[in-house]
């Protein structure tokens, strides 16, 4: 599909061009989400896109779907409600590293624990961009932020490991540089029944890059290219060799009962409809 067809079919043309900064990764991720939705063949009229608050959470505003722009950190709570009320809908959550891991951290682990059929795409730009560059739980330890002029002392989360441990059944990590892989990872997540989670390593040249000697979007994508290790290659490396790198690809997949189905069974049992 050409860009023109893609925009015509899946975006609110009158809202474009978007307001994200030059070189911001959000537009790349939004494009990848749209292409993945197309690739996975989801029914546009039966898909709901939910977001929280932050730069990333503006994305659904540009997308021609039923969309919900909710409160800070609470995208997953709203999405859980939508999915439980209407289990036949495809529900996609677009969130940022701050929104998802800090304010919404509790919702994240519990949505993963339930294995509810949601597809979550985290725009991880390592920073709170919208509010001026405060560090988030994913800001790498030692890097600089408006609120960490001498470098962060906090250890950063590995969000994929967290979701895996909490019970998520599809976990993947992609980057804005490896865009084709990203589309495939999101598409696979959309096809997975259960809690699917895709972390996207992205770039904020304005508030993260400038403070961390990555002075342009190009420099930040070069950094991704040099530090990302595909999951197959990573399996052959020692922890020492992987130090300072990050693994991309499908990291975890398992089958487990899906929450809305388990819940429907409970309703049937309570009504005495069980065989």
């Amino acid at each position: 599909m050409s860009v023109e067809e893609l925009l015509e079919r899946y975006t609110r043309r009158d809202k474009l061009p978007h307001i994200w900064c030059p070189g911001c990764g959000n537009g790349i991720i939004m494009g990848a989400v749209i292409r993945a939705l197309d690739q996975a063949g989801v029914d546009q009229k039966k898909t709901v896109i939910v977001s929280g608050i932050g730069c990333s959470s503006r994305a659904p505003g540009y997308m021609k779907f039923d969309t919900l722009h909710t409160t800070h950190g609470r995208a997953l709570a709203y999405a859980t409600g939508v999915k439980l009320a209407r289990p036949e809908l495809k529900v996609v959550v677009l969130t940022g590293d701050g929104d998802c891991a800090a304010i919404g951290g509790n919702h994240l682990i519990h949505a993963a624990r339930r294995n509810i059929d949601l597809t979550v795409v985290v725009f991880n730009n390592d920073i709170y961009g919208m509010t001026g560059g405060q560090y988030s739980p994913l800001t790498p330890q030692g890097s600089y932020a408006t609120t960490a002029p001498y470098g962060t002392v906090d250890r950063n989360f590995d969000l994929c490991e967290l979701v895996k441990a909490a019970g998520g059944t599809y976990v993947a990590r992609g980057t804005t540089y490896h865009t084709r892989m990203l589309i495939d990872l999101i598409s696979a997540g959309l096809g997975h029944k259960g809690f699917s989670f895709i972390e996207v390593v992205s770039q904020c040249p304005m508030y993260y890059g400038r403070k961390n000697k990555l002075t342009s979007a190009v420099a930040m994508l070069e950094w991704q290219k040099e530090h990302a290790v595909p999951v197959k290659a990573a399996a052959k490396l020692t922890p020492e060799q992987l130090k300072g790198k990050f693994v991309i690809g499908e990291l975890h997949r398992q089958e487990a009962p899906e929450y809305t189905e388990v819940y429907a069974n409970l309703v049937a049992r309570a009504r005495g409809e069980e065989k």
Binding site: M1, S2, V3, W20, G25, G31, T176, Y177, T179, L221
Partner: peptide, 21 residues
């Protein structure tokens, strides 16, 4: 098609099919 996929602003077009089509 990499320019289309990586352009954050949807500003590049190959003017036809791309991305493995």
């Amino acid at each position: 098609g990499l320019c289309e996929l990586r352009c954050p602003d949807f500003a590049i077009s190959l003017g036809g099919k791309s991305h493995g089509e």
